[in-house]
Deep mutational scan, measured.
Amino acid sequence: GKELVLALYDYQEKSPREVTMKKGDILTLLNSTNKDWWKVEVNDRQGFVPAAYVKKL
């Protein structure tokens, strides 16, 4: 099944490779191999968020 993460904080994208999320959002985790930036999918968009801003559910 898909792995989900919870947004712990708001995050505003700073580049086209990133995505914006709001605290409390549930996101689909696509890739967590990089310890600093995790790739997630939110609202049919894929991009990176800081790993410290999310936690695995």
Results as ranks from 00 to 15, higher is better:
residue 47 G to W: 04
residue 31 N to G: 07
residue 16 P to G: 09
residue 42 V to W: 09
residue 34 N to C: 11
residue 30 L to C: 07
residue 13 E to V: 07
residue 26 I to D: 00
residue 53 Y to T: 09
residue 52 A to D: 12
residue 40 V to T: 00
residue 28 T to A: 11
residue 30 L to T: 05
residue 50 P to C: 04
residue 12 Q to H: 13
residue 49 V to S: 00
residue 13 E to K: 13
residue 40 V to N: 00
residue 43 N to Q: 12
residue 51 A to L: 02
residue 4 L to Y: 15
residue 56 K to T: 08
residue 52 A to N: 14
residue 20 T to Y: 04
residue 27 L to C: 10
residue 53 Y to S: 13
residue 12 Q to A: 13
residue 5 V to T: 03
residue 25 D to H: 05
residue 43 N to G: 15
residue 4 L to E: 07
residue 23 K to C: 08
residue 8 L to F: 04
residue 48 F to G: 01
residue 26 I to E: 04
residue 36 D to R: 12
residue 40 V to M: 02
residue 44 D to K: 11
residue 28 T to L: 14
residue 18 E to V: 05
residue 47 G to M: 05
residue 55 K to D: 08
residue 53 Y to L: 14
residue 16 P to W: 09
residue 9 Y to V: 11
residue 21 M to F: 10
residue 6 L to E: 11
residue 10 D to Q: 03
residue 24 G to N: 06
residue 27 L to S: 02
residue 39 K to Y: 15
residue 10 D to E: 06
residue 40 V to H: 00
residue 1 G to I: 13
residue 42 V to C: 11
residue 5 V to P: 00
residue 1 G to T: 15
residue 25 D to F: 04
residue 57 L to T: 07
residue 48 F to W: 15
residue 40 V to R: 00
residue 47 G to I: 04
residue 10 D to G: 06
residue 55 K to N: 07
residue 51 A to M: 05
residue 11 Y to C: 02
residue 42 V to K: 15
residue 11 Y to S: 00
residue 44 D to E: 13
residue 36 D to N: 13
residue 19 V to F: 11
residue 9 Y to N: 08
residue 5 V to D: 01
residue 51 A to N: 03
residue 40 V to D: 00
residue 41 E to T: 07
residue 53 Y to V: 07
residue 19 V to G: 02
residue 26 I to Y: 07
residue 54 V to L: 15
residue 27 L to Y: 09
residue 33 T to H: 12
residue 35 K to L: 10
residue 39 K to G: 06
residue 57 L to H: 06
residue 53 Y to A: 14
residue 6 L to A: 06
residue 32 S to A: 12
residue 18 E to P: 05
residue 56 K to A: 08
residue 42 V to S: 15
residue 32 S to F: 07
residue 21 M to T: 03
residue 27 L to W: 03
residue 45 R to H: 07
residue 31 N to V: 08
residue 33 T to C: 13
residue 36 D to F: 15
residue 22 K to H: 11
residue 55 K to Q: 14
residue 10 D to W: 04
residue 14 K to M: 11
residue 15 S to K: 07
residue 42 V to F: 15
residue 41 E to C: 13
residue 28 T to F: 12
residue 43 N to Y: 12
residue 7 A to K: 01
residue 32 S to P: 06
residue 8 L to N: 03
residue 13 E to L: 07
residue 39 K to C: 14
residue 8 L to K: 05
residue 24 G to Q: 02
residue 48 F to N: 04
residue 47 G to E: 02
residue 8 L to D: 02
residue 44 D to C: 13
residue 11 Y to A: 01
residue 50 P to V: 02
residue 16 P to K: 10
residue 25 D to E: 12
residue 28 T to I: 15
residue 54 V to A: 03
residue 16 P to H: 10
residue 9 Y to I: 10
residue 57 L to V: 11
residue 32 S to H: 09
residue 39 K to H: 10
residue 51 A to W: 02
residue 14 K to G: 08
residue 27 L to H: 03
residue 48 F to E: 04
residue 2 K to P: 14
residue 38 W to Y: 08
residue 8 L to H: 03
residue 18 E to N: 05
residue 6 L to T: 07
residue 21 M to K: 00
residue 25 D to W: 11
residue 7 A to F: 01
residue 46 Q to R: 11
residue 55 K to Y: 10
residue 30 L to F: 04
residue 37 W to E: 04
residue 36 D to W: 15
residue 36 D to A: 11
residue 22 K to Y: 12
residue 48 F to C: 12
residue 43 N to M: 13
residue 23 K to Q: 09
residue 32 S to C: 13
residue 35 K to A: 13
residue 4 L to K: 11
residue 22 K to N: 08
residue 20 T to A: 07
residue 14 K to L: 09
residue 2 K to H: 12
residue 51 A to C: 08
residue 9 Y to D: 07
residue 33 T to V: 10
residue 5 V to H: 03
residue 24 G to R: 02
residue 14 K to H: 09
residue 7 A to G: 03
residue 52 A to M: 12
residue 49 V to Y: 00
residue 36 D to C: 13
residue 19 V to Y: 03
residue 9 Y to K: 13
residue 6 L to M: 14
residue 31 N to S: 13
residue 39 K to M: 15
residue 13 E to N: 07
residue 53 Y to E: 03
residue 30 L to N: 02
residue 3 E to V: 14
residue 32 S to E: 15
residue 49 V to H: 00
residue 29 L to A: 02
residue 16 P to C: 10
residue 10 D to Y: 05
residue 50 P to A: 02
residue 53 Y to N: 07
residue 1 G to L: 13
residue 35 K to W: 07
residue 52 A to T: 10
residue 12 Q to G: 07
residue 55 K to I: 15
residue 40 V to C: 06
residue 43 N to T: 10
residue 23 K to F: 05
residue 42 V to E: 04
residue 21 M to Y: 01
residue 15 S to Q: 08
residue 10 D to L: 02
residue 35 K to P: 14
residue 20 T to H: 05
residue 37 W to D: 01
residue 11 Y to F: 08
residue 54 V to D: 01
residue 24 G to Y: 05
residue 28 T to R: 11
residue 41 E to Y: 06
residue 14 K to C: 11
residue 33 T to Y: 10
residue 51 A to F: 02
residue 6 L to C: 09
residue 57 L to F: 09
residue 57 L to Y: 09
residue 11 Y to M: 01
residue 46 Q to V: 14
residue 46 Q to H: 09
residue 45 R to K: 12
residue 30 L to W: 05
residue 45 R to M: 07
residue 18 E to G: 12
residue 15 S to G: 12
residue 23 K to P: 03
residue 53 Y to G: 08
residue 12 Q to V: 14
residue 7 A to E: 01
residue 28 T to Q: 12
residue 1 G to K: 14
residue 24 G to F: 05
residue 44 D to R: 09
residue 51 A to D: 02
residue 10 D to K: 03
residue 37 W to F: 06
residue 3 E to G: 10
residue 54 V to N: 00
residue 12 Q to R: 11
residue 28 T to D: 05
residue 9 Y to M: 12
residue 34 N to H: 11
residue 53 Y to H: 09
residue 30 L to S: 03
residue 55 K to E: 14
residue 52 A to G: 12
residue 13 E to T: 09
residue 15 S to T: 12
residue 37 W to V: 03
residue 27 L to N: 01
residue 30 L to D: 02
residue 26 I to C: 06
residue 9 Y to H: 11
residue 23 K to L: 06
residue 33 T to R: 10
residue 39 K to W: 15
residue 4 L to S: 07
residue 48 F to D: 04
residue 23 K to M: 08
residue 8 L to P: 00
residue 50 P to S: 02
residue 51 A to I: 03
residue 2 K to F: 13
residue 29 L to C: 07
residue 6 L to D: 01
residue 17 R to A: 13
residue 23 K to H: 06
residue 2 K to T: 11
residue 35 K to I: 10
residue 39 K to Q: 13
residue 35 K to D: 10
residue 47 G to C: 03
residue 33 T to K: 11
residue 54 V to Y: 01
residue 25 D to R: 03
residue 46 Q to Y: 07
residue 13 E to W: 05
residue 47 G to F: 08
residue 23 K to S: 07
residue 19 V to T: 06
residue 24 G to H: 05
residue 46 Q to P: 07
residue 34 N to R: 09
residue 32 S to Q: 10
residue 5 V to N: 01
residue 44 D to A: 10
residue 27 L to E: 00
residue 18 E to H: 07
residue 52 A to K: 15
residue 18 E to T: 08
residue 7 A to V: 11
residue 48 F to Y: 15
residue 25 D to L: 05
residue 4 L to M: 12
residue 13 E to A: 15
residue 55 K to S: 11
residue 6 L to G: 03
residue 29 L to R: 01
residue 13 E to P: 14
residue 35 K to V: 12
residue 16 P to V: 09
residue 44 D to T: 10
residue 32 S to T: 09
residue 7 A to S: 06
residue 36 D to P: 02
residue 4 L to N: 05
residue 29 L to P: 00
residue 46 Q to W: 09
residue 46 Q to D: 06
residue 26 I to Q: 05
residue 17 R to L: 12
residue 2 K to V: 14
residue 39 K to V: 14
residue 34 N to E: 12
residue 55 K to P: 02
residue 5 V to E: 00
residue 54 V to H: 00
residue 28 T to C: 10
residue 56 K to F: 11
residue 18 E to D: 05
residue 41 E to R: 09
residue 41 E to V: 10
residue 51 A to V: 06
residue 16 P to M: 09
residue 4 L to T: 08
residue 48 F to P: 00
residue 37 W to C: 06
residue 45 R to G: 05
residue 7 A to I: 02
residue 10 D to S: 08
residue 17 R to M: 13
residue 17 R to E: 14
residue 11 Y to Q: 00
residue 37 W to N: 02
residue 53 Y to P: 02
residue 25 D to I: 04
residue 3 E to F: 10
residue 23 K to G: 05
residue 24 G to S: 03
residue 3 E to T: 13
residue 21 M to R: 00
residue 20 T to R: 06
residue 56 K to I: 15
residue 26 I to F: 06
residue 21 M to W: 01
residue 32 S to V: 07
residue 4 L to P: 04
residue 37 W to H: 03
residue 12 Q to K: 14
residue 9 Y to F: 14
residue 15 S to F: 06
residue 2 K to M: 12
residue 33 T to F: 10
residue 48 F to L: 09
residue 33 T to D: 15
residue 39 K to A: 08
residue 30 L to I: 15
residue 14 K to A: 13
residue 3 E to Q: 13
residue 51 A to T: 06
residue 30 L to R: 04
residue 25 D to N: 07
residue 18 E to M: 05
residue 15 S to R: 09
residue 13 E to D: 05
residue 57 L to Q: 05
residue 12 Q to T: 13
residue 26 I to R: 05
